[in-house]
């Protein structure tokens, strides 16, 4: 099927600003699903609140646009009650890791077969440019007019520490890589996380004098490099891209099937 078969064309052009990286993530995500040849009926997309979460309205799947930060909790209910569904959860950095941080950690810990895509633009865009937990110290935001003092954290390290069994990072500049990583994340059985560094030219870019969407994408190209590459080894400032972890561990819904087996055979209790 063509890309347009996966979207709800009547809602285009979408609400995102010109040059917004979230559109590129949408673009890549649809292409990964297209290459997998999945039926639209077997995909449930769950999102929370924010610019990123509006992605749900544009795709022709079962779509659940929920409340701020809780998308993974809703998704857990969807997946566990009907494990044959493919559940994809696109989230913004604030949505996933500030208000939704606890749900993120625990979905990873359970290793439930959900694909989490974190569209990290380092800002709260929908509300007009407040700092997020990934803005990082020294950045400017409407709520950090004298420069942010909040340190950020490393999404990849946190996801791995919490127990996610597939963890990857890429950027919107690397659209082909993004498509491939999301495809692998969907195929992975277990909790998978793809951090896509994304540009918000309207707020993060403007506040921090990073130039246009194009300039921001060029910057993402220059500050990142593949895991273990020469560039990454030589420069500690470089942010590594690639698949950081991909391992097989017991998946939550499969494990619960064993609980049912034990319960119906009268074991335990």
């Amino acid at each position: 099927m063509a890309v347009k078969d996966y979207i709800r064309e009547r809602f285009f052009p979408h609400i995102w600003c010109a040059g917004c990286g979230h559109g590129i993530v949408l673009n890549s995500m649809i292409r990964s699903i297209e290459t997998l040849g999945m039926s639209k009926n077997e995909i449930v997309m769950v999102s929370g609140i924010g610019c990123s979460s509006r992605i749900c309205g544009y795709v022709d799947f079962h779509t659940l646009h929920t409340i701020h930060g809780r998308a993974l909790a809703f998704a857990t209910g969807v997946k566990m009650s009907k494990p044959e569904l493919n559940v994809i959860v696109p989230m913004g950095d604030g949505d996933a890791l500030s208000i939704g941080g606890n749900h993120f950690i625990h979905a990873a810990r359970r290793n439930i077969d959900i694909t989490a895509i974190i569209m990290n633009n380092r800002i709260y865009g929908m509300t007009g440019g407040q700092y997020s937990p990934l803005s990082g110290a020294g950045t400017l935001a409407t709520t950090a007019p004298y420069h942010n003092i909040d340190p950020d954290f490393d999404v990849v390290k946190m996801a791995m520490a919490a127990g996610a069994t597939f963890v990857a990072r890429t950027t919107t500049y690397h659209a082909k890589e993004t498509t491939d990583m999301i495809r692998q994340a969907i195929l992975h059985e277990g909790f998978s996380v793809v951090e896509v560094m994304s540009q918000c030219p309207t707020y993060f870019g403007r506040k921090n004098r990073l130039g246009s969407a194009v300039d921001m994408m060029k910057q993402m190209k220059s500050i990142t490099a593949p895991i273990g590459s020469k560039a990454a080894r030589e420069n500690p400032e470089i942010i590594e891209r690639g698949i950081f972890c991909q391992e097989e561990k017991p998946e939550y819904c499969s494990e619960y099937d064993k609980v049912i087996e034990r319960a119906t055979q009268g074991q335990g209790v």
Partner: peptide, 14 residues
Amino acid sequence: IASMCAIIGASLTG
């Protein structure tokens, strides 16, 4: 919070 959200998700699958 997560409990309430999870049951809503599960209700939607029927």
